[in-house]
């Protein structure tokens, strides 16, 4: 419960950054924070107290393993997050070359 709430606070910090920051790099970093919080939340939902990692060994039965399904889905989600970050960075670099600034308010003014 406390862990869930702390993880939700992390998500809200990322949302705060997206809403209030004017710098494109800060907005990309805030999106990254939200992604971290979402991934961590999914893994928190799958944790079983006292259980071990879901890899079969000698003397290990499936009853004492954590939930492997969120782990499998988050594994690909992390890699996709890297691709999305790379794409956002490429967009930001292109915008910088055109407008010579990372400030989103100035970018809007120049385009109008």
């Amino acid at each position: 419960m406390t862990v869930y709430l702390l993880c939700f606070i992390l998500l809200l910090v990322g949302l705060y950054g997206i809403i209030t920051k004017r710098d494109l790099i800060k907005i990309i970093l805030s999106l990254g924070i939200m992604g971290y919080a979402a991934n961590l939340m999914l893994i928190l939902f799958g944790y079983k107290s006292g259980a071990i990692y879901p890899i079969l060994e000698k003397g290990v039965t499936p009853e004492i393993m954590v939930d492997p399904l969120p782990q499998a889905l988050v594994l690909t989600s992390i890699v996709i997050e890297l691709g999305i970050t790379a794409m956002l960075v490429a967009l930001a670099v292109r915008l910088f070359e055109k407008y010579k600034t990372f400030d989103i308010t100035k970018i809007r003014r120049l385009s109008g």
């Binding site: 879901p54 079969l56 060994e57 499936p62 009853e63 939930d67 594994l75």
Partner: peptide, 30 residues
């Protein structure tokens, strides 16, 4: 926290090694 709903995953945990032949059950799901 610590008591997940593992309705689908119980099948994966119990039958994963037999169905797919993978010792790492995360890999067998992916």
């Amino acid at each position: 926290f610590g008591n997940p709903l593992m309705e689908t995953s119980e099948y994966y945990l119990a039958h994963g090694a037999k169905d797919t032949g993978s010792a790492n059950l995360v890999t067998s799901i992916i």
